[in-house]
Design a protein around this nucleic acid. Structure first.
Lengths: 154, 154
DNA sequence: ATACATTTTGGGTAGTTGTGGGTAAAACTC
DNA sequence: GAGTTTTACCCACAACTACCCAAAATGTAT
């Protein structure tokens, strides 16, 4: 295969149907490696959006969480908050996954949504929410982007 | 089977019936490996909740406890508090397990409960109790959360 | 521009799941 | 040992989910 597997870029405008389902763009399904078995893990994003991981990538996160001892209070809280809203979802013959009511509510999704490739994961946004956040953080980001220049060479 | 065995994620709102029974979410039963023979071990959680382990995983915990020397007072207390209220329970044809009166009381369970996947185990909460604990520990955790998040790349 | 193929969207149906409750066997009490 | 309580197992129903079919929309090639 010529393209990078499990690597997502670009932006798509899709819709959530009355059953809470959403189509995974065909391009993303095509780059998903076979070992994921058509399965993604959806979870609560750090921003007001839904994060979608290839199942195999999420497994690595789980494996790390398994090594945190539950005797520590912080560890328990951390594992709980990370995993609590995660769900493993397989896409159907039409390429759709079912979102959970909680995540739809958390991301304030209505009919129209924006699907954005974030390299190793995918984000699902309410377009209005994204616009709002971009506006709010515009000034702050400008300064910090300079810092990043040290880490990433574009 | 395609998904990760004995690995639990997500959150479910279920109910405890008048006989003290609670349904194990179908997703959790499906990922339980065959060697557990439909059996979980329920025990007192570190927080005010019930911990539910796959039977095979609990066996490993017991093995670890065996290696704690009983000469130390702390060890004796710890072993006692961990094992004392543990019960092995097999789920019925409808997928329900019976909780013990002690554990129902310990976790202050009423009709409505929250079942949370914690990767290698399951937690059963009174929603109000969880909310309370999360509030109490929010500030304490903030700093350590960041540390953990840096180690585990989401 | 037209025909063909792929992709997205909408909806129907059969099977699964969660919940309540009934009954018989087992355990416990006096 | 008889009566009472508890436990284990079974059936039934309502709500939900997964799966399938089909139409609409979009993209591609000639």
């Amino acid at each position: 295969m010529t393209v990078n597997q499990n690597t997502f870029t670009g932006e798509y405008s899709y819709s959530v149907d009355s059953k809470g389902r959403i189509n995974i763009p065909a391009k993303y399904r095509q780059v998903l490696s076979a070992d994921n078995e058509s399965t993604f893990v959806i979870t609560r994003g750090q921003d007001a959006c839904i994060w979608v991981y290839p199942a195999a990538a999420w497994k690595q996160i789980e494996d790390q969480l398994k090594h945190l001892s539950s005797l520590k209070q912080v560890n328990r809280s951390f594992v709980r908050s990370t995993v609590r809203h995660a769900a493993s979802v397989k896409y159907d013959k039409q390429g759709r996954i079912a979102l959970t009511p909680y995540l739809i509510d958390y991301a304030s999704l209505e009919n129209e949504v924006l699907i954005i490739g974030m390299v190793n994961k995918i984000e699902i946004w309410n377009p209005a929410q994204l616009e709002k956040i971009e506006q709010e953080t515009k000034d702050i980001n400008a300064a910090e982007f300079d810092e990043l220049a040290n880490q990433i060479i574009l």
